[in-house]
Amino acid sequence: MIELTGVGFTAGLLRLHDLNLYVDAGESVALMGRSGAGKTSLIEVICGLRPLDAGRVMLNGVDVTRWDPADRRIGYVPQDLALFPHLSVREQLEFAPRMAGTSAKVYRSRCEQWGELLGIRALWGRSVLGLSGGELQRVAIGRALSAEPQVLLLDEPFSSLDEATRLEMRALLNQVQTETRVAALYVTHNAQEARMMGQRILNLEGGFLRPVVVPVPRSEAKPSSEIPEVPQSESPSGP
């Protein structure tokens, strides 16, 4: 669960304040906004990579505002993926548990399971250099998940993928979320992608976070987990 209360921060010339956000466990929320609106900076604030001017960040009910990024247990997939170029696919997934001092026996089998789920087991020994966009995406998600995060933050995760791979990745992430019950926040500036990935959509514009009402075509106007009811406002007190 992610909870931001009265968050304010500065990113270059951009100053945002009094932002409130709530993402429940197992829920996926898409965060939209124009380029330069502060979406990526907001993600960095949640990660602890950007200092706060005001407000509070809570993860799974714990105030982590002053915590180091290393202690927050966040699965962060940045826009450029930022995979480690010197490590193989297996080593990328084993990186977090290895750094945490988990025994090799334990993390090897767990990472292999993630590899199977993400469909990258066949690439295990390969370097990340030379993999396709979809494969790199899977590796980055696998690396984030292998740290057993409390929340998943994905910044423009599918911006460089074709339509078929996007659909595939969406199904995969839905499966991952069903299994892990992590709260997920997807940043995008693409409305279609936001509808695809978020159970709710928020728009960051002019320094405010506003819910977006998704227009549902009549033919598709039926109960769906992908296009749920949109709450009237973002409340820090939760649902």
């Binding site: 290393a70 940045p78 930022a82 170029p85 690396r143």
Partner: peptide, 24 residues
């Protein structure tokens, strides 16, 4: 960014330097 991601993966500053920066 790779160093920042390593931090979110639980690395200390030394681990980031030793296992992410130096090999690159």
């Amino acid at each position: 960014r790779t160093e920042q991601v390593a931090r979110t993966l639980g690395c200390s500053r030394y681990q980031v330097f030793r296992y992410v920066v130096l090999p690159q």
